[in-house]
Structure formats: structure tokens, C-alpha cells
Amino acid sequence: MQLQVGKPVAGAEHYNGMVDCFRKIIAKEGAGRLYRGLVPPLMLEAPKRAVKFAANDFWGKTFKTTFGVDKMTQGLSILTGCSAGATESIVVVPFELVKIRLQDKNSTYKGPMDVVGQIIKKEGLLGMYAGLEPTFWRHVMWNGGYFGCIFQVRSLMPKAQTKSAQLFNDFVSGAVGGFVGTAFNTPFDVVKSRVQNSIKVAGQAPKYSWTFPSLLLIAREEGFGALYSGFLPKVLRLAPGGGVLLLVVEFTLGVFRKQLGPPYL
């Protein structure tokens, strides 16, 4: 949905929402096409989440020391999240690039390694980092919204008296954070998808390159709503996913702290 350029044209295929997109893909290309580009996200998910939370912990400690405070504040939680997102974006770009190239409905690539091989052959190793700048903004916005909301929602929820109540609080905080982060970052995600799907042609400037000019271009040509293409499937994935992510991280850290003893509690 994010790769649809321009307004609907009579007689041309166009996806009119998530359900219509599912229906047309299955009808014309088969259910297996829904899993096109699965390998890059599978390879990326574990290191991506590890970097996200490790970077958030690192930047949180760094900023508290820098600003001379003992406890996290709302402002610092947002700044910390944005910094974690910036760090995470460096890891993500090559995997996202391969996924986008495979998921384009006009894609003729044979698989992930074919994408990698062709990009390196035509553009060199740095070609694997096409779309770094919009990916940077995408992750800065999502992580800032996510970790900022977690801090705020936790402070508003009743103090947990049991382990199950604490896990529930973590899930709700993460889910709200996932929703807000997705609302903030979807326009940047649309630009990132367009940039990464642009094949370089010698002597020809790509239509989409830098983030903010591309945001204005899409809004002018297709309307503001085009910047939120694919929002529904994104938020259905990332809102509950954000809750599960925080729940699992906090639960796992609790287990390790208990096993490692007092210094880590």
C-alpha cells in the first residue's frame, strides 16, 4: 500500500484499504505472496530489539549523568527513546531495503540474496544503505513516542501489587506506546518505502530522496492521507506488538536478575 504512487486511475489496479489489498494479492498472486520478504524481518527481529533496549538503557544512563538527575523524567524518556531509535536505524536499513524490494508487486528478484547481489553489483556496498536518512527519522519518531508513552502510562496506572498485575501494566504501557509511535512514524515510513524502492538510473535524479521534501511532495501530489498509507496494518502489528515486546523484555530481565543475584536486582 505504501508503494502505490499517485492517485487511483480508472482501469489501473489500486488497493483501497487493508482488506482489499489482502483480497487482491491472494486472488491474483496466491496466499504465498503474503509472505514475500519474510526472511529479512526474521533475521532482523532479534538483533533489532536487542539494540533498541540496550541503546535505550545506555542513553538513559548517559543523559541522567549528563543532566545530573537521578530519576528519569518525561522529557528525558523521549530524548532517550529518540536516541535509541537513531542507534537502531543503523542496524535496520539493509534488511528493510531487501524486504521492500522483494515486496514490491513488480519485483522480479528471485530471493533475498538476489536482491543483495544485484544492489552491490550496481551500486556497491553503500547501496545497501539506501534510505538511511528516512529510516533514521522513522525510528527516531517511533522510539521517542514508544518510550515516552511507556514512562507516562506507567506513572498513570495503579501501582502493581502482584507479578501478574505488573505484567499487565507493562503490556498496556507498551501497547499504548506502540500505537502512539506508529501514529508519529507512519509518514516517515511511507517515505522510507518509496526511497528504498527507487531504482537508481544514471543521469536521472530519483523522485524521492530526502525525507522532508518527499513528505511535502507526497502530500501535494496525493493528499495528506497518502502519508498514512498502510497505517491500519502497521498499528495492528505494532500496538499489541509493542505491548508484548515490553512484557517479554521486562519478564526476561526479571528472570536473569533473579538468577544473577543482588547486584543485578
Rank of each mutant, 00 (worst) to 15 (best):
Q2G: 10
Q2E: 12
L3F: 02
V5R: 15
K7N: 04
P8H: 11
A10D: 14
E13M: 11
H14D: 05
N16V: 10
M18V: 11
D20G: 08
L34R: 01
L38S: 10
P40G: 05
P41W: 03
P41Q: 02
M43P: 02
A46W: 08
V51L: 13
K52A: 10
F53L: 06
A55H: 05
F58G: 02
F63L: 07
G68P: 00
D70C: 06
K71C: 00
G75Y: 01
G75K: 00
S77P: 02
I78Y: 01
A84P: 11
E88W: 07
E88M: 14
V91S: 13
V92P: 00
P94F: 06
E96Y: 04
V98L: 01
R101F: 05
L102A: 10
L102R: 08
L102W: 07
D104R: 13
P112K: 00
P112G: 02
G117S: 13
K121P: 03
E123N: 12
A130D: 06
G131S: 07
P134A: 02
F136P: 03
V140M: 12
M141S: 14
G148R: 00
Q152F: 03
Q152V: 04
S155C: 01
M157N: 04
T162R: 03
K163S: 08
S164H: 09
N169S: 15
D170H: 12
F171T: 11
S173P: 11
A175H: 10
A175D: 09
G177V: 06
G178T: 12
T182I: 10
A183T: 06
V190P: 02
K192W: 00
S198T: 15
I199T: 14
A202S: 14
G203I: 05
A205T: 15
P213I: 01
L215A: 05
I218A: 03
A219N: 07
F224K: 05
A226W: 06
S229I: 01
S229C: 02
G230V: 00
G230W: 01
F231S: 08
P233Y: 12
R237Q: 14
G242V: 06
V244M: 04
L245R: 10
V249L: 01
T252V: 11
L260R: 10
